[in-house]
Structure formats: C-alpha cells, structure tokens
C-alpha cells in the first residue's frame, strides 16, 4: 500500500499536466482539423426536425407531381398506392389498427410528424440511389404520400411552411420518455413457483422457421 502510494504521486502530477494539455475548457486547444466554413457545412447540413420542420429547404411540390415521381421512383417496392410489395414497407393503411393483434404502423396510422417524411425520403430514398432527388421532388413525394393517407386534400402543396402544420393522426400517442424499469421482481431462490404449474406455453420445435446453423448459408427457399 505504502509503496504504491509513493508511485502514485508523480503519476498524479503527470496526469494533471496532461489534463491541462487537453485544455478541458478551451475550444481549439488541440488545433487539429479545420474550422468548417458555412459553405462546407451547407454541403452536409440536410437534417430536418420532425416537430417544427426546422431545416426544411426552399421549394415546393404538388400531389400530382408527386404521383408521377412516385410511379417512377417508389412504386416498384412500395406498391402503386403505397400498399407495399413483398416485405417492403406499406406506406398507407392501418388506421385504427394500433391496438389490434396485428397492428399496421404506416405513415397514415403511426408516423407522428410530417416533416420527418420529407427528411427520410430526402436522406435515404430511393433505396438504390439515395439523396439524388431534388428538393421539389421530395416535397412532391411527401405531398403525394400524405394525400394517399387522406392526411391532406388533393390540392395540397407541400413546402417548408405547410408541412409542419399537417396534423398526423398518431402525433399525440407517443410518450417521449422512458418509463422503464417497468417490471419489478424479487429474485426468489427456492420454491418460487409451484412445480405443478410450470407449463410450456409455446415451443419453437417443429415450426420450421429457423435457418440452419451449420453448413452454408440457408436461403430458406423450397428445395
């Protein structure tokens, strides 16, 4: 103990020196990299806030224009009317289904904020060529998908002012704080439940849903 204390003291001094080198409070102490210019920031500054639409760029788009862009860019995966092809996401429907045994969360039934739709299309779609559409086309697609969901009238024009005002159906049903832990259990050790009551309620045996875990990758295709 004593000897380790003797060693500790010089180490502490070194650490303090390193700490001041790191300049805990002074921006630019290291001086690495370059200060980002406004033009550089503009190149990547694409984010849009869902709640108030902050960050939405100039531009606008109509429902009709959106239908044309959609047919060309989106329908192959999301279906002509947003019904979804295969396992690609449905964009439409499911309204009133969120308490059902098989809920359908879509833009119409689940999404809380319309500007988030603009943001997501702009940053991630179309899947094979993301972030290649013009701002106007993204506005048009947003208008069209909102219209497919009966959230806006046919004559709606999407722009930076109109999108934040669109009232989404599920907007007020999100709790933006985590209520967990929501289970409390005492870690019982003996005779915790009646042995006669222990019953298997479900088993994965025989379901044939599990790919193999040896040999080559399993395509799960009928052979």
């Amino acid at each position: 103990m004593y000897s380790s204390r003797k060693i500790c003291l010089p180490i502490t001094v070194i650490l303090l020196a390193a700490g001041s080198l790191a300049g805990a409070a002074e921006p630019g102490s290291f001086g690495y990299g370059r200060v980002a210019t406004p033009a550089q920031i503009a190149g990547w500054d694409i984010d849009v806030r869902g709640e108030d639409g902050a960050g939405l760029p100039p531009g606008k788009g109509t429902v009709d224009r959106g239908a044309d862009v959609y047919a060309e860019q989106c329908a192959a995966c999301h279906g002509t009317f947003g019904e979804g092809e295969g396992r690609f996401p449905k964009l439409v429907g499911g309204v009133g289904s969120l308490r059902d045994e098989r809920p359908e969360p879509t833009v119409g039934s689940y999404w809380p904020f319309a500007p988030t739709l603009w943001d997501y299309i702009n940053r991630a779609m179309p899947m094979a060529a993301p972030h290649t559409l013009s701002a106007d086309d993204v506005y048009a697609l947003t208008a069209y998908i909102l219209s497919l969901n009966d959230l806006v009238p046919h004559e709606f024009v999407a722009d930076r002012n109109s999108l934040p005002k669109v009232k989404m159906r599920n907007r007020d049903n999100f709790i933006w704080s985590d209520p967990r832990p929501d289970t409390v259990a005492a870690p019982c050790m003996n005779a915790c439940v009646n042995a006669a009551d222990v019953r298997i309620s479900s088993t994965a045996e025989g379901r044939n849903l599990t790919p193999r875990t040896t040999g080559p990758l399993d395509t799960m295709q009928p052979k």
Partner: peptide, 8 residues
Amino acid sequence: WHSREETS
C-alpha cells in the same frame, strides 16, 4: 430531431 429511426 424525431428522425424516422426514432419515430416510425
């Protein structure tokens, strides 16, 4: 931000 990955 309420991005798509934290809403939908």
